[in-house]
Nucleic acid binder design. Sequence first.
RNA 1: GAGCGAGUGGCGCAAUCGGCAGACGCAGCGGACUUAAAAUCCGUCGCCCCGCACGGGGUAUGUGGGUUCGAAUCCCACCUCGCUCACCA
Length: 963
Amino acid sequence: MSETHSASAAEVAAPHRYTAAMAADIEARWQDFWDAEGTYAAPNPSGDLAGDPARVALPKKFIMDMFPYPSGAGLHVGHPLGYIATDVYARFARMTGHNVLHTLGFDAFGLPAEQYAVQTGTHPRVSTEANIRNMKAQLRRLGLGHDQRRSFATIDPDYYRWTQWIFLQIFNSWYDDTAKRARPIGELVAQFESGERATPDGRPWGALSTAERADVLGGFRLAYASDAPVNWCPGLGTVLANEEVTAEGRSERGNFPVFKAKLRQWNMRITAYADRLLDDLDALDWPEAIKLQQRNWIGRSEGVRIDFPVHKAGDGDASITVFTTRQDTLFGATYMVLAPEHELVDAIVPAAWPEGTHAVWTGGYATPAEAVAEYRKQAAAKSDVERQTEAKDKTGVFTGAYATNPVSGERVPVFIADYVLAGYGTGAVMAVPAHDARDFAFARVFELPMRCVVEPSDGRGSDPTTWEDAFGSYDAKIVNSTGEGVSLDGLGVVDAKVRMTEWLAARGIGEGTVNFRLRDWLFSRQRYWGEPFPIVYDEDGIAHALPESMLPLELPEVDDYSPRTFDPNDADTQPETPLSRNEDWVNVELDLGDGRGTRRFRRETNTMPNWAGSCWYELRYLDPHNSGKPVDPEIERYWMGPRDGQPHGGVDLYVGGAEHAVLHLLYARFWSKVLFDLGHVSSAEPFHKLFNQGMIQAYVYRDSRGIAVPAAEVEERDGAYYHQGEKVSRLLGKMGKSLKNAVTPDEICAEYGADTLRLYEMAMGPLDVSRPWDTRAVVGQYRLLQRLWRNIVDEDTGAVTVTDAEPDEDTLRALHKAIDGVTGDMAGLRFNTAIAKVTEVNNHLTKTGGPVPRSVAERLVLLAAPLAPHIAEELWHRLGHPSSVVHQDFPVADPAYLVDETVTCVVQIKGKVRARLEVPPSISDEELEALALGDETVRGALGGAGIRKVIVRAPKLVNIVPA
RNA sequence: GAGCGAGUGGCGCAAUCGGCAGACGCAGCGGACUUAAAAUCCGUCGCCCCGCACGGGGUAUGUGGGUUCGAAUCCCACCUCGCUCACCA
């Protein structure tokens, strides 16, 4: 593209035409102006960002994007889609009388930044800061109206100081199940001291050693370290949260295998909030799909815990507690399965196989102990990937022990199998093979008995051995379920559940309970590039919080920040934290201010996960420079506080991708609730309205070897695609460097200007739908801006051509309909149709010819201002207004012009349009019917046939049904 | 396997409540300007048929059925695509 050529030719043709060169000039000028004037500064009610009280008195709107990760690759046109949308909405909100807070920070800790640093051999701080500068420049070019005073990055010590502070708040709290809220840990200690609450082993608090007390409190703290099976990823050299592991059992980042390993790690007790995280979803204005994903992730299920008596191998009795949601099928429980890791397994395994044990059950081992040990070894060596792919082939082994079904009194064999998960429920199940697909498959393999207790309603008969699958329907009657003191026979599933639960409770062998799928959040990573934990260990290994005065605990500058990674498939490896290599930093002498003077400590060398920084950033936007608190309570209440009787407040609009459905969005909600419980914030929910924008897709062209070729070099001929003469295939995919189809905002801005890019991205389709990028189509929005410009400015002289004459009726109708439509579309985030309406009224003015009335031109400029702010600002000033268009009032439609003088009424005969009538909008049904039936065309079409029925919907429709 | 969502011109899409299908834009086609091209402007544009033309008729929202005076829109079944979850007891 020879840009200089076209630009100079355009200048010759029309020196004042709206061209890319002119757009570049206009855009740069107004961006500088906005910066200098602080046009987008949102005043706080108090503090260092306090401002114009009149503006503070307006209703507030807090509009937010999911903040970006400053990657080294820079932006492509897909990235700013959401940022442009929130900017348009924020501008519309400003023009409709709101105090608007809109800014953007950077989520800059975490794995990708660190990996990029390792690849390029630059320190992550250096590369990350360079990336942020680059991204800021790219974003500034788009004319986003951000309050720059409020921007920050999560790696700023001024910011992560408060991330650490919040961690300590969580560390120093416990969840009071009675009050259903978090409370300071000191209040728990007081309960132990007073004896109001008993210690776990019943000894008085004063009799416990320091270490014992620390242990007890660790069992309550909302942030705690524990030895537990975690997701260990040798390929990344770090452990991962459940949310970061894919369904295939691989790491979301890097796609490496993930293994279960028992390691001492930090956790957040998010499970304490399971019910509130679930319940509070109802009041949120979020897409149902995202709410559903969170509900599924939290996974609430109601059931019962049932005790199955079992003999210990040595001496004494024990019981295996199972969790089930199908207590109605208890009579059909013919065996039990424990997770291989279940703690009771060793206790119940006998020395020898019982007399007559089925050969299939023993796995060919001589003793139960040997079989169990071998099976455990095999299970542990399996990666989650293997577990997943082999899910259909059930494996397991008999423990040699029998338990007793408490309702039938039957002796049931106890197995271990990896299809029972240690982390869910009690890690043990009662197996009902006839009515559960997994138990059915297992029973087939091990030739276990099956009993039908829910009568099949699909005619398959009542002998499970002849079935092809388990029968799980809820719409059936219970059978074969009569025992001592209880019978469920003839009841429906729902009633049977109630009866069984009552019976179990009365006998003290079971109780109704609620179980959640959600696990605690694994919160430590073996990485350099993250927030250090404000935790030190004393010589006894007891964890202590650093006092507030020692925050921020800065990440030490080190030369060796690489993670220790391993062969991705080697499960027998141990994580190593990069910070632990730095002995000078790790070993410290500190006075923690606890009255015990200066002592020796070792620092915690894990770092926080990437998600920590994004868990509370909305709060820091509000009061970014506060050095005494994360956010001032008055300022927080102003922007986040509940309104209009809502149970919670929060951000008014939060726009981002759906990929964060159960990660960031769940973690941020959790932190909000803790901070709310502890009285630091006024809203228990961070984001009131959530909107997921779609993705901008792009065509990927591949040659015969399947390798992507540069999309920009592909030519189309007769519906086929060619790269350097070779035919290539075309598929729709993601946009990105690796697929060689990235288009940058910089190139589009250079070719057409930022306003054109903004319009095109908003006009492509509905915001929540994914659609393919088409660079060829961008020119359409460029032409719109050129026509808008030409309607106001003479291309040859540069003079403003508007007239003071009154607009005609048609023009007023077109204008006010557009105002009315655009207002509704903007409020509903339907920017694509808003642009269509602006285009329509602009086209109307173009067609009319002659100078445009000033009143119309001005309102058209205001209509376009949120979408194309630079050209609007320029035209607004050329029209003689000295102050910025940004804070003008959005035009209001005059209802008088929303009604047409005449409307077209369609006359249908049997639903087919046969005639059109121009009628006044106020016409009555009777008048319209008479008019339609008298119409010549209609009479002709009826051809003398009689009339059975006439449907009239004045003034738009008459439908005649002939006899 | 389960759940959710979506299928409309060559393409992106519009149709707010069941009432003129295809707004707006791209591409295409015809024209103006130009020595020429690009850019720009004007016109045209679902498909099929009749007609020199004005115009007229038929048909059409993934497929098949249903409800209704009337269906892109509501209901049932099926097909295709997308997303999410997936041994959760």
